[in-house]
Amino acid sequence: MLLSCTVNGEKIEKEIDPAKRLLDFLRDDMGLTGVKEGCSEGECGACTVILDNQAVTSCTVYAGQVMDREILTIEGLEKNGELDILQKAFIENGAIQCGFCTPGMILSCRALLMEKPNPTREEIKRAIEGNLCRCTGYEKIIKAVECAVKGEVQ
């Protein structure tokens, strides 16, 4: 099918197999390798992207389902070379170790902040409950989001 959708602010049209996973479409056809694959069944959150303002696991969405919709990946977060406040906060707070969970983690948090600019600690935890991280124990990730919310970022 001819897919038309918006990826990181850019309108695109591409001939695709609608049964392809959104994950593969983004990584292989669009070259957006910031989208990571950790479990392939919606359980680890590494492949999280934002679809019409909602965090989704792109391994469980088919490319055919994103017709006329808007997708945001980690590559689309920075604007004119300026990092998103969450990206800065993750960097400054030691929220990134191996970094494999990071893109998905940041996008889950970004989706949360789109909906709720002032989340509580509990809400932050819930927003990333589907994002597994083996390195950090989550604490510095939560702290990073709290700092971003409070604007305590350089």
Binding site: T33, G34, K36, L83, F90, I91, I96, G99, F100
Partner: peptide, 21 residues
């Protein structure tokens, strides 16, 4: 000191190339 490691800038932007990339 709490210095910021250098690899995290690219990791935060999804630019780091892991083997799968």
């Amino acid at each position: 000191k709490r210095l910021i490691r250098e690899d995290v800038y690219d990791k935060a932007r999804g630019k780091t190339q892991y083997t799968c990339d």
